[in-house]
């Protein structure tokens, strides 16, 4: 593999890793709200979270660019206040990937929260555990299989993100050219077919490895929690 290809791989892993890490707290919070609480606007929140699943990625990317671009309301504020630029940076690519992967993550976590035995949380409360401690010591550990599945799905989805990424972060070699963008670029380049094939196989391998790892981890958790 060429240096450029290795660079694309490393960049993809970094973008996907940060995408998952940064969205996990929000994913847990959103899943918890949707699984446990009823409040006005819940349906709207649910819809908003799932929007990236049904919208064309390019539309999501363009929307993000309008918001986060240097002239967008949030982008301008970030630039003026903190000197942070998201558009056409790898951080922007991570945000695009996170938004696109968010519904998958929330769904998995929400499912595991909904199937969790609430009686165990009640038992913890009668043992003197505050709601926060119950969440940290009972709810989260028991929802761990769902967290793992959610993270892996989001990671795999982030690795494959193309449309929203190219709109928000562009296709800058060494900065925002992740695996899918590199494949696209190689195919556009005369004589790049071999490199495109290598990167394609690499993508397939990564995705398979991630799914396999999640299955193994989830199975281990199921064995632990068997009752």
């Amino acid at each position: 593999m060429s240096d450029a290809e290795i660079e694309a791989l490393r960049l993809s892993l970094r973008v996907a890793g940060w995408s998952v890490a940064a969205s996990l707290p929000f994913g847990i919070a959103a899943a918890w709200l949707l699984a446990r609480k009823s409040f006005p606007g819940k349906t709207v929140l649910d819809g908003l979270i799932h929007l990236p699943l049904v919208l064309p990625p390019v539309v999501v990317g363009y929307g993000l660019l309008l918001l986060l671009g240097r002239n967008g309301p949030i982008g301008r504020w970030l630039d003026a206040g903190f000197g942070i630029t998201l558009a056409f940076t790898w951080q922007g690519a991570a945000i695009a990937a996170a938004v696109m992967a968010f519904p998958l993550m929330v769904r998995a976590i929400r499912l595991s929260l909904e199937s969790l035995d609430r009686g165990l949380e009640q038992a913890a409360a009668t043992l003197g555990a505050s709601p926060l401690r119950v969440f940290a010591t009972v709810t989260l550990p028991l929802a761990a299989p769902g967290l793992v599945v959610g993270c892996v799905l989001a990671f795999a989805r982030s690795l494959g993100e193309f449309g929203a990424t190219i709109m928000l972060a562009g296709n800058i070699a060494g900065q925002t050219r992740t695996l899918p963008l590199a494949i696209y670029t190689e195919v556009q380049t005369p004589g790049g077919e071999a490199a495109a094939l290598r990167l394609t196989l690499l993508s397939v391998g990564l995705a398979l490895a991630a799914l396999l790892a999640s299955e193994i981890i989830a199975r281990r958790f199921r064995r632990r929690d068997r009752r």
Binding site: G119, A123, A125, T126, P131, V138, P141
Partner: peptide
Amino acid sequence: QPPWRRGIGYVFQDLRLFPH
């Protein structure tokens, strides 16, 4: 007063031991 401040122990019919 919420359950965790009551100081009342409870042995449930379905026990509810923490599986993890």
